[in-house]
Design a protein around this nucleic acid. Structure first.
Lengths: 262, 262
DNA sequence: TAACATTCATTGTTAGACAATGAATGTACT
DNA sequence: AGTACATTCATTGTCTAACAATGAATGTTA
C-alpha cells in the first residue's frame, strides 16, 4: 500500500489560509506525510498554492494550534507532522466545555453526569487492569492529601492526581482523555462549593475506591465511586440551595448579552 | 462580580505569537471578553504587545483554529469571541484519535471499548429521556438503511445517523460530543471489515435497540446495544483472523519509521 | 419610503527584508 | 585521532509598509 501524492487544489480567492490548512490537514489524514515527517518549506508551500509566504505561514499556524504540526528553525528545521499530546487535546476540549457552560449550552449537571458515568467505568476497568505502578500512583495521591494544613489549591491538585491515576489505570487512552477533559472543565463549574467539602469524608471515600481497585473488585470499585460522586452531588445541592440559587441556570459567571453570532 | 481587566504581560523574545495567543486564551477563560464580544483590533493588539501586526494576526489564527474566536471584515468587523460548535470540536478530537491510532498510541480495541461503554450509557439514558423527535430521528435512520441497493458509503452514513440520534436522545452534550468523536475516528479503524457485515443482522439489531428506546426500557436498551457491539466485535475478529493478522499491532496503514520527535 | 452610492474602519493578502536558530561542516589545537 | 571551537546556511520568526476586499453605517437620490 503506497502513500498518495500531494495534489494541491487551486484556491478560490476567499479565506486562502483556511483552504490551505484544510488541504494540508486532509493530506496528512490521507497519509501523504506521516508523523515525524517534514512538510515542504513555507516558501515551497507558498509557491505551490501561489500565495505569499505570510499566508502559507498562517495556514501552518492553524494546524499547529491543534498540535497537528510543529515547526523548528535551523538548517535542518522545517514543519513536521506531529502527534498531538493527550494533555493538549484534553485542554482544548476542557476549554470548549467551559465556553459551552458559560454560553448556557451545557449545565453543571451535564458535566457531573458525564464525569460520573465515565469515572465509574474507569474505576471498574482499573480494578481489572491496574498494575503495581498504578496502585502506587493512586495510593500516593491519597496519602499526600492527608495533610490537614494543605491549601485548597494543593488539595484540589492531589484530588485531580487521584482521579487521573484511576483513569490511567483503566488502560484506555480514549477514556482517559475523556476523563481528563471533564476534569479540566470542572474548575469553572465547581468553584462555588469546593470549600464546603468535608476533607475527611472525601479522604475516606477515596480510600474505599483505592481498596476496591487494589482488591481487583470491579463491582466494589464502581460502587465506591458512585458513593463518592453522590456525596459531591449532595454537597453541591446544599450549597446551591443555601445560596438560594435556582437549580437550572447555574451560570455564576458574568454574562454580557451576547452579540448574535451570524 | 465584575469582569477582570486585560493586563498584557511583556513577552520574552521567543515564540511571540504563541505567548500572545496564550495570554488572550487565558483572558477569555477569565471572562475578560465573553462570547460574542469583540477583541481589540489587530493593530491595537500589535501595539499593546509591541509586535508587528503580522505577529498579532498569527496569534489570532492560533485561537481561531480551535474556534475560540472568529474574524469578520468590514467597518464593524473585528475578532469576536465565539463558542466552538460541537462538530468542530468533535472533528478535531476524532482527528487526534486517528493520529494516535496511526502512531500506535491507541488500538482498535481501545476505540471500540470506548465506543461500547459510551454508547451503552447513551442508549440507557436515551431510553429514559427520548422525546418524540428523538424517536422519529432514530426510526427514520433505521428505515432509510433498509434499501438493499444502497452503497456501502451511504449505508455507513445512515449507520452514523442512527448512532448520532441515540447519543442526542441521551440529552447530555458532553457524552454526545464524546460519542461523535469516537465515531468520527472510526473510519480509519474499521475500513477492513465493514463489507463483511450482514446488513440484515445489523438492521435487526438496530431495530431491537430502537424498540427498547421507544419502550423507555433502559436495561433492554443497554442489552440490545451490547448485543450489537458484540456482533461487530465478532465480525472484526473473524476478519482479522482470516487475514492472518496478529491481534495486537493493527496498523494496516503504511507507517514510515518516524523521525524522533525531540 | 426605498433603492442606490459613498465612506471608512477592519481584516485579508502581498512583497521584500532582516533576525534568530541550530544542524552540519570546517578548522585549529591538543 | 579526537575534541573544542568557529563558520556556514537553510529555515522559521518577525518586521515594515503597502494595497485589496469587505461590509456596516451613512448619505443621496428617485
Amino acid at each position: 500500500m503506497s502513500r498518495p501524492p500531494f495534489q494541491p487544489v487551486a484556491l478560490v480567492r476567499r479565506d486562502a489560509s483556511g483552504q490551505i490548512a484544510r488541504q494540508l490537514r486532509e493530506a496528512i489524514a490521507a497519509g501523504v506525510w506521516v508523523p515525524g515527517e517534514r512538510l515542504p518549506t513555507e516558501q515551497d508551500l507558498a509557491d505551490t498554492f501561489e500565495v505569499s509566504r505570510a499566508t502559507a505561514r498562517e495556514a501552518l499556524k492553524l494546524l499547529s494550534a491543534t498540535g497537528l504540526v510543529r515547526s523548528a528553525r535551523g538548517a535542518q528545521g522545517g514543519t513536521f507532522v506531529s502527534v498531538p499530546v493527550a494533555e493538549q487535546v484534553a485542554t482544548q476540549l476542557g476549554e470548549a466545555i467551559q465556553l459551552w457552560y458559560r454560553a448556557g449550552n451545557v449545565t453543571v449537571q451535564n458535566v457531573d453526569e458525564a464525569r460520573e458515568v465515565l469515572e465509574t467505568i474507569c474505576a471498574g476497568l482499573a480494578a481489572s487492569r491496574r498494575t503495581p505502578e498504578d496502585i502506587g500512583d493512586i495510593q500516593s495521591a491519597v496519602e499526600a492529601a492527608q495533610d490537614p494544613a494543605m491549601s485548597i489549591d494543593e488539595w484540589l491538585d492531589w484530588d485531580l492526581a487521584f482521579h487521573t491515576a484511576i483513569s490511567r489505570a483503566a488502560k484506555n487512552p480514549i477514556l482517559e482523555l475523556a476523563m481528563m477533559s471533564v476534569h479540566l472543565s470542572r474548575p469553572a463549574t465547581n468553584t462555588v462549593f469546593v470549600d464546603l467539602l468535608d476533607r475527611q469524608q472525601v479522604l475516606d471515600q477515596h480510600s474505599a475506591i483505592t481498596q476496591a481497585i487494589i482488591d481487583a473488585d470491579p463491582a466494589a470499585a464502581r460502587a465506591a465511586l458512585k458513593n463518592h460522586v453522590s456525596y459531591l452531588d449532595l454537597v453541591r445541592r446544599d450549597a446551591l440551595q443555601s445560596l438560594e440559587v435556582d437549580d437550572v441556570p447555574l451560570s455564576q459567571l458574568p454574562l454580557k448579552p451576547a452579540r448574535p453570532q451570524q
